Simulated assay, not measured.
Amino acid sequence: MSFPITRHRRLRGSAGIRGMVRETVLNVLDFVQPIFVTYGTGVRNEISSMPGVYHFSLDTLKAEVDEIAALGIPAVLLFGIPETKDAIGSSGFAEDGIVQEATRLIKQWYPELLVVADTCLCEFTDHGHCGMVHTHTVDGVVHGDVINDASLELLTRTAVSQAKAGADIIAPSNMMDGFVEAIRAGLDDNGFEHIPIMSYSVKYASAFYGPFREAADSAPQFGNRKTYQMDPANVREALREAESDVLEGADMLMVKPALAYLDVIRMIREQFDLPLVAYNVSGEYSMVKAAAQQGWINEQAVVLEMLTGMKRAGADIIITYFSKDAARWLRE
């Protein structure tokens, strides 16, 4: 049937009708709130390129976690900025590492709040890369190659130490080949068969990570990450990456970033039945914040539309720095 018998506007005529037929609904249980923990005392410093996001020392962390728990957000994603760094990122797998200490505190305060531990080395290495590197100098310029297989051992040690500290979910973000298999074996060998892996399966070498480099103090000291993170132009490669992680034992898959990669989220959703995570990254957050501060957009409307688009594309879980704001807006 066609117009005038068919009138699509009949189902848009009131808020009640629109709500009744709404196909995609955001829920606070969809969200994971990232947290940046750092050394020192009395630290609660706003990150200049990410308004509303802070570095917390362990003694100021509880107020942030209290707020997250009160809003009903079910999970946090921990990133750590250590006091010292070295070539192998040893503070990333130290028993008294900053992420490990923060995990113990959060699980003491809120046992039911899920702690997702980002498992990478870039915040902990003095060179800023996500694994071990072999460096050489040519004409005074430092060059380096990230060593894949040797890095797996360090990443596994990091994952196991995070699990021992009480992390509920291990989220490896390093994009080394074979990282899921190595970490799964390490967890299982140490009695953590029950700990799921949320794999950063499809992680692009994106320009949207800029503000995160400041937040995590993790900018590479030479070169870039294009030899291990994916080319933004590629989509079929995403299928290969995701399939490898499924076969290696991943429990959840992730696409990062989200906003410019909704087609990839949809494709992964259609090809695999594991829970799918979208990471609404720092640059996506900051550009919305900047436009809102200029009065150019309605921040609440834009954020909820953006997050709804990620869920509509197929995401089951959304990691976003807007989690607290979105949780409040959804309550209204």
Rank of each mutant, 00 (worst) to 15 (best):
V53R: 05
I297T: 09
R225H: 06
D126T: 09
I197E: 09
V21K: 13
I106Y: 03
M50T: 11
E214A: 13
E46V: 11
A94Y: 01
K203A: 12
A278H: 00
D263T: 08
N148A: 13
L274Y: 03
G283W: 07
A159E: 09
G309L: 12
F31N: 01
A182I: 05
G40Y: 08
L58I: 10
I319R: 02
L304S: 11
L29W: 00
A75V: 08
E101T: 13
R266C: 04
M287K: 09
C120T: 11
A182R: 08
A69M: 05
A315Y: 02
L113F: 04
E241C: 12
V43R: 10
K311Y: 05
A238H: 01
E193R: 13
E299T: 08
V235Q: 09
N45E: 14
S218H: 02
A260N: 03
V116W: 03
K226I: 04
V32L: 07
A315N: 06
I106R: 03
A216P: 00
A260D: 03
F212D: 07
A313Q: 05
I265D: 00
V281C: 10
R331A: 15
N174W: 00
Y321A: 12
E237A: 12
L71M: 12
G283T: 01
G295V: 15
A327C: 12
I47P: 01
G249D: 14
G80I: 13
P257H: 11
T119M: 08
A15S: 14
V25G: 06
H129R: 06
K324N: 03
D149H: 15
A150L: 12
T135K: 11
S2A: 14
K289H: 03
G295H: 02
N298S: 14
M310G: 00
H134M: 09
D118L: 10
T125S: 10
E284F: 06
L29K: 04
S218A: 15
M132Y: 06
F322K: 08
I73C: 09
G309M: 13
P51N: 07
N148V: 09
S14K: 06
G40L: 10
T84N: 14
I5E: 14
A75E: 14
V76W: 09
L154N: 03
Y285K: 06
F222T: 09
I319S: 04
F208I: 04
M310E: 03
